[in-house]
Design a binder for these strands. Sequence first.
DNA 1: GTGGTCTAGACCACC
DNA 2: GTGGTCTAGACCACG
Lengths: 125, 125, 125, 125
Amino acid sequence: MIILDYKDRRPIYEQVVEKLQELMICGILEENSQLPSVRTLATELSINPNTIQRAYAQLERDGYIYSVKGKGSFVADQAVIIEKKVWEIDNRFHSVVKEACMAGISCEELHQKVDVYYSEGGTGV
Amino acid sequence: MIILDYKDRRPIYEQVVEKLQELMICGILEENSQLPSVRTLATELSINPNTIQRAYAQLERDGYIYSVKGKGSFVADQAVIIEKKVWEIDNRFHSVVKEACMAGISCEELHQKVDVYYSEGGTGV
Amino acid sequence: MIILDYKDRRPIYEQVVEKLQELMICGILEENSQLPSVRTLATELSINPNTIQRAYAQLERDGYIYSVKGKGSFVADQAVIIEKKVWEIDNRFHSVVKEACMAGISCEELHQKVDVYYSEGGTGV
Amino acid sequence: MIILDYKDRRPIYEQVVEKLQELMICGILEENSQLPSVRTLATELSINPNTIQRAYAQLERDGYIYSVKGKGSFVADQAVIIEKKVWEIDNRFHSVVKEACMAGISCEELHQKVDVYYSEGGTGV
DNA sequence: GTGGTCTAGACCACC
DNA sequence: GTGGTCTAGACCACG
């Protein structure tokens, strides 16, 4: 389900974090369901378990998952997940709109872009 | 004019690049005007000249400035600068709208955000 | 495999870039194969790691290689490499033919030169 | 007659050298005719006389002009000039054809390019 | 004086 | 171990 891009400049653990977040937001990973173990996912992606460990740690730190010692890692409540993601998106949206304003892009143009890009939906990459 | 954030995880030279781009887009640094010399800006920010040199190199590579050995570095034509920035903003806008869509944020909500954030203009950080 | 010419006025890092490009085009460095590490190549050529780092950075910027922190640097897809090189050669070819025309060299002469120089192939310098 | 491009990365004196070479090859500057004095050309182009001095020195070193103390600088015999230019072009042609061969460009393709680019003649930049 | 390159040595993030 | 960033100090080419 997760495909790593070694040509991507970003660190592997960050790619893993992002992919898992997407799966949680889309609902493919349901709330309170168990995530694959660190070692399982590591061998599945043929990468170092340390890398997965780090990804899980960051996800837990950010509230996307919770770990139970001796049992495993589980997806947090979707409400929490969505809330976090929305907050992060809102920040980026704020930032990019502000910069667009400074760069002289008109407000109407942005509204048009919203419609165009939104209609593309989640299609493609 | 430029304030560095050492807590920021991004490299110093990248922060310098970004700040200078902003100053050029806002028109504070006018086209074909001379930038501070590598050494001057380095001492002003209390960092190593090499770091500034790297920032200037990247800005030149990306077409924001042009450097002449023995003379100094100069701001490129603003048309070019704006064009590059608009392209970059459009990319980010596309990406964030797509993710907003996936996260279940409605199109109307985005339109509202555009109006709100746009009206804030270039004020503050 | 790489020999530096210190009498050459061009910077060291540029010579390294050019040599590596040649090795990639000739197929001696195969696509997706790992390049020598920054430190290894630096000690091998008895130059500073920073200089190699700079060469690698430029190669990555131009799409010839991709680097992964903690793993190493790798040769990009050969299709991409060839495409870039062909474009660069075409530019130089255009320029030199134009100048030859201005200098009074006849078109027939150029055709003869093409045959002669082409038949020499990739032999020696 | 000479227009300098400060956005060009090459040093000014090199641009001056190249422009003067062109004027001599095209015959606009006739053989044995006198070149403008260092100071005259410097003020005309509003640059430092040192820069012109350097350009003239290189042209003399390469045999394009000869200087007579107390009289000025003069254009060399056009036969000599053409010969030098042809030699330089031949070198570049050799180099680019060799690289084209290594990059897998076919001999026929090069012949086609010769015809196309040659027919463009000295038009445009 | 300017930008550009190189060296030497250090530290960080990542795997 | 890897690539990437930063510092300190030197030298060169250019104007």
